[in-house]
Measured scan of single mutants.
Amino acid sequence: CFKERTRHLLREWYLQDPYPNPSKKRELAQATGLTPTQVGNWFKNRRQRDR
């Protein structure tokens, strides 16, 4: 489970761009302490949920 702060950051970025490029994923991974793969999976799952 991700911390509330991490989820908030991910949601904020998702609203700006639901399809982040690899450099954005790396930047967000550094900001949250997650791996770029975890960030990518979160975005993928969130896009699925929004369908």
Rank of each mutant, 00 (worst) to 15 (best):
C1G: 13
F2V: 10
K3F: 12
K3A: 11
K3G: 08
E4I: 09
E4V: 07
R5W: 06
R5V: 09
T6D: 07
T6K: 08
R7Y: 11
R7K: 15
R7W: 07
R7M: 14
H8W: 12
H8I: 15
H8S: 15
H8F: 12
L9K: 10
L9T: 11
L9C: 04
L9N: 02
L9R: 09
L10S: 01
L10Y: 00
L10C: 05
L10E: 04
R11M: 13
R11N: 15
R11P: 00
R11V: 10
R11H: 07
E12C: 10
E12Y: 07
E12A: 07
E12V: 08
E12N: 07
W13F: 10
W13L: 10
Y14C: 00
Y14A: 00
Y14I: 05
L15F: 05
L15Q: 13
L15R: 12
L15P: 01
L15M: 14
Q16A: 13
Q16D: 15
Q16P: 03
D17R: 01
D17S: 04
D17H: 02
D17A: 00
P18L: 00
P18M: 09
P18S: 07
Y19E: 08
Y19V: 05
Y19R: 11
P20E: 00
P20R: 00
P20C: 04
P20V: 05
N21A: 10
P22R: 05
P22Q: 09
P22E: 14
P22L: 15
P22C: 15
S23M: 10
S23V: 09
S23Q: 13
K24E: 11
K24R: 12
K24N: 09
K24L: 09
K24A: 13
K24G: 08
K25L: 14
K25F: 10
R26S: 11
R26C: 14
E27Y: 07
E27A: 10
E27T: 06
E27H: 03
E27I: 05
L28P: 00
L28G: 01
L28N: 00
L28H: 01
A29N: 00
A29Q: 06
A29H: 01
A29F: 00
Q30P: 01
Q30W: 14
Q30G: 09
A31L: 14
T32G: 02
T32C: 11
T32Q: 00
T32I: 05
T32M: 05
T32K: 01
G33W: 02
L34K: 04
L34M: 13
L34P: 03
L34R: 04
L34W: 06
T35Y: 00
T35E: 08
T35D: 05
T35A: 02
T35M: 04
P36S: 11
P36Y: 15
P36I: 12
P36G: 05
P36W: 09
T37E: 14
T37M: 10
T37V: 12
T37Q: 14
T37Y: 10
Q38R: 02
Q38A: 10
Q38S: 02
Q38V: 02
Q38T: 04
Q38N: 07
V39H: 03
V39L: 03
V39Y: 05
V39P: 00
V39R: 01
V39T: 00
V39C: 00
G40W: 07
G40D: 07
G40I: 03
G40P: 03
G40Q: 10
N41W: 03
N41R: 15
N41E: 12
N41Y: 00
N41H: 08
N41P: 00
W42M: 01
W42Q: 04
W42Y: 01
F43D: 03
F43I: 05
F43R: 01
F43V: 00
F43E: 02
K44Q: 10
K44I: 08
N45I: 08
N45V: 05
N45F: 04
R46F: 06
R46G: 01
R46I: 02
R47K: 02
R47Y: 05
R47C: 05
R47M: 03
R47P: 02
Q48Y: 15
Q48F: 06
Q48A: 09
Q48C: 12
R49M: 07
R49V: 07
R49L: 09
R49E: 14
D50N: 04
D50L: 00
R51C: 04
R51L: 07
R51G: 07
R51Y: 13
R51E: 12
R51V: 06
